[in-house]
Write a protein that binds this DNA or RNA. Sequence first.
DNA 1: CTGAAAGCGCTTACAG
DNA 2: CTGAAAGCGCTTACAG
Lengths: 355, 355
Amino acid sequence: MIVLDRKPTITDVAKLAGVSMKTVSRVINKEPNVRDELRDRVLKAADELGYQPNFSARSLAGVRSFQLAYLFGDPGGDYAHGVQIGILDACRDAGYHLVVEQIDVDAPDAAQRTATLVAQLRLDGVVLSPPITDHRGVLDALKRAGVPYVRIAPDEALDGSPYVQMDDAKAAEELTHYLVDLGHRDIGFIKGHPRHAAGRLRFEGFRRAMEARGLAVQPSLVEQGTFSYGSGIDCAWRLLRRRARPTAIFASNDDMAAAVAAVAHESGIEVPEDLTVVGFDDAPIAQVVWPPLTTVCQPIREMARAAADLLIGRAADKDRDSWPDPVPHRLLAHELRVRRSSAPPGERTVARARR
Amino acid sequence: MIVLDRKPTITDVAKLAGVSMKTVSRVINKEPNVRDELRDRVLKAADELGYQPNFSARSLAGVRSFQLAYLFGDPGGDYAHGVQIGILDACRDAGYHLVVEQIDVDAPDAAQRTATLVAQLRLDGVVLSPPITDHRGVLDALKRAGVPYVRIAPDEALDGSPYVQMDDAKAAEELTHYLVDLGHRDIGFIKGHPRHAAGRLRFEGFRRAMEARGLAVQPSLVEQGTFSYGSGIDCAWRLLRRRARPTAIFASNDDMAAAVAAVAHESGIEVPEDLTVVGFDDAPIAQVVWPPLTTVCQPIREMARAAADLLIGRAADKDRDSWPDPVPHRLLAHELRVRRSSAPPGERTVARARR
DNA sequence: CTGAAAGCGCTTACAG
DNA sequence: CTGAAAGCGCTTACAG
């Protein structure tokens, strides 16, 4: 181990190994066309000096920056955090770094802030998650700057860019079949944010499953939420104070399902004895409310990892100036998680619902 | 608005404004010694071209990088996410970018990964939060690399580096006084992770307050948790199946308090009628369990913001090679949040506890 | 398979 | 107050 009074550079390694700078560069970047003997000498020298490439120099000189950015909108979110962890998984494996930026979807300067970010930083790619995965201005700014991006759980796939998703409609169908199989007929539904694809698709799946079983979706049992806990509270009150209340409630995400459980408690309605409650996402909250929620696991971390890998793969490709045709996309598997918030409807519950 | 076929550089701005590159640099970086007239010309030219400085070039050439890093340990955390939002607040205002890295505290390569990060990236500073705010190896790696860092809620302040904190002991004291004033005498306590300063300080505050009121801390009512929801479940069972169970339980954080509430529900114990439960932090979970938790608000976002501001301030300082003496630190204000999980002990509850 | 030269877009250190 | 030159640590494009 040789210690310099400054950070060792590629030149230091080259001198020590007795080769040119360019050869060191080839070895560090795993490029072909280096004799094994030289490669070994370089690796040894780099190791002795504790050499690490300077990412600023790399990105200034080269076409790759070894840097990704993650743009997220929701300042509160478990979701955003989960996505971030998944991106970091990919970055760690590929020797990448991650820059994060929070951009309020409703801020008038969202597009401008995106443009500034990509003008200042050379980025191999940007990962987007809901709600800004569907922000037209942000998308346009990225396109104009020529920065590759991948959208997670996008609304319209029509953007021409790659995306990663799960099958929300199918998962909602499965969850609904599960409820019907349990014996529920009068099922309340709390919709998600109308602007979010996931919200619409989950309702669509519910509707389809009900029809498939010959059951009517009762309009009076469908409430419009926004995915927030607060909206879940409001919808739950409306649903539960009805004389003929449902025996089960399907909330479009776990936050709203937790809200339903809270309102039930407050109203003296036992979950799941008097009311089955199911959510969606398998967010941390699902296991932390009482009772733990039956839900569908959305593989957020894996989705994010896949998005980042797509970007890293493109940057490594010799044909890095465009996406392959057709543009890549990934559909990741979900999973039903049955927990204690669901049960067959009780006798008296059914009686009341039927009344 | 002039559009080039490439990103405009400082040279483009200089030419358009009819000044030297160096003058543009002075204006962009708000350095003194530029005539107003030149400044205006430069600003106008920069604006017309839509010029944005290249951060890679800046950090390669200069002593500042306009970039901070945030190292967090807990992959699950609301806490980490809150810290990140606070740092981003500061970055946004100062024109900084933020690189994030997740490092498992218990991983043997935690220090090595830190060293690699700071060798590859030029950073104006690093923000650390629990649990790695107390990781000796990580701290040493940072020190060795000469990268300034600020610790959030550190265990030992003895490190010689700046830190930001709240007064955990005092807050716990206040919360305990509140419980005693409500009429509680038999108060159970669930400790936090023994390795975390916050855990110890909160218990210390509890102890002090009990003594101040002439009440004994009953060893049989003190359980050792780890801040996790799961540990809260275990501790709650032990506390609640006792014949003479406490009338109130003080959990060292909200996750564990939520767990207590869940176990209470499962056991048919009503909160707050039969049992008062209080937490700590005012994490999102506090308002999302039933009933909402009485807790202490830890100003995480503001603490993180203060930490980042310290780092940004130092980088902007002409004396940026060392911290001022004495090293700066910030103590931010907490706040008691009374919600529905706490109430005076009921008659029968007191009777049972006294038995 | 290997390397010498030029250049990425800035800031530093210096001169005037 | 202003600017010309050198250099940060790499990669590119090219030559051999």
